[in-house]
């Protein structure tokens, strides 16, 4: 259970973590600047278990992995959006923040209590369940390994 942090369409990586903080690599420290200037309450109030709920094209723009790391540092485990920008999608999976596609995010209000059930593939908000699209199979292999770092370790130095 956590609260929904609701965002609109085309949330870019400059909004998630502005360019001037890119010399930082620590997730917690990055989190303290997440959405700085565009949504200041996020860094102050986001808690473990909270979920980002957004519109189309979440994470567009830069390839900076600082963006999913900042969300991870803030305790975000899931980002549920209508669609994702390609590089963010992969970065999120690689860093262990799961990007989940859901066409119904308009129906979830900011601040709503939400719960993600990954196994049964739905997000629950206010007694209603909205289905989540499955993560593509080749990405799921990385998720199941525990991220790309673990996946690479399994592969070793072959």
């Amino acid at each position: 259970m956590g609260r929904a942090w609701k965002f609109g369409d085309d949330i870019d990586t400059d909004a998630i973590i502005p360019g001037r903080f890119l010399t930082i690599y620590d997730p917690k420290e990055l989190a303290s600047h997440a959405f700085e200037g565009t949504r200041n309450d996020f860094a102050a109030e986001a808690k473990d278990g909270d979920v980002i709920v957004a519109g189309r094209n979440f994470g567009c723009g830069s390839s900076r992995e600082h963006a999913p790391l900042a969300l991870k540092g803030a305790g975000i485990e899931f980002v549920v959006a209508k669609s994702f920008a390609r590089i963010f999608y992969r970065n999120a999976i690689n860093t262990g923040v799961l990007p989940l596609v859901c066409p119904d995010t308009d129906k979830i209000a900011d601040g709503a209590e939400v719960f993600v059930n990954l196994k049964e593939a739905y997000i629950e908000a206010g007694d209603r369940r909205y289905p989540l699209e499955p993560i593509p199979e080749f990405m799921m292999r990385i998720v199941e390994a525990g991220g790309l770092v673990e996946y690479a370790k399994m592969r070793g130095n072959k």
Binding site: S62, S63, I87, R90, N91, L148
Partner: peptide
């Protein structure tokens, strides 16, 4: 590991931006 890596398509290459973890791989 930069999103505008697609620029090298100007020379007929398939080039694309990736994140840092993909780059580590």
């Amino acid at each position: 590991s930069d999103s505008h890596t697609c620029a090298y398509g100007a020379l007929g290459a398939f080039s694309t931006g990736i994140g840092s973890t993909d780059m580590a791989y």
